[in-house]
Amino acid sequence: MDTASIDQIIDRHQGEASSLIQVLLEIQREYHWLPQAALREVGRKLKVPMARIQHVATFYKAFSVVPKGRHRVHVCVGTACHVRGAMRVLESVQDLSGIAPGETDLEHKFSLETVNCLGCCALGPVIEIDGKVHGNVTKAGIAGILGRYE
């Protein structure tokens, strides 16, 4: 983490305390998580107490206070995907990435989560990576999909 880029983000918001959430969102976008050192810097420059920042950073699902991978993999396990074999897809993603839902691999490449519906049940089973939806996923096709991400 370099302080310069954090400072840049804070300066873009004129160091306004009311921009706390926007600042945190931008840091989250850049680093995929909110490192403690970054939060301390935000608190110092925006003059917001640490207790308040921690409250906000742990309240919203959009923020993570633990490291996340460069790519966020969401495997849908909603009803429609479930009956179309989501559990086999999930198993295969776990085997290939070596991580369980909620975890991040050591190279910080992937973070895996399960979700309950992505709203495109007709494409099930569905996995979403960095916001891009991959539909009609087969167990055999997963290695190819994951292989496209660096």
Binding site: P49, A51, Q54, T58, F59
Partner: peptide, 27 residues
């Protein structure tokens, strides 16, 4: 701590059923 003492040494973290109080160790 926030309003009277003004130190913000303890705060809430998380939300819903996981919400709890947490001291900021440095402070």
């Amino acid at each position: 701590c926030a309003e009277v003492v003004g130190k913000h040494a303890v705060g809430f973290i998380d939300r819903g059923i996981r919400k709890e109080i947490s001291f900021v160790p440095e402070i």
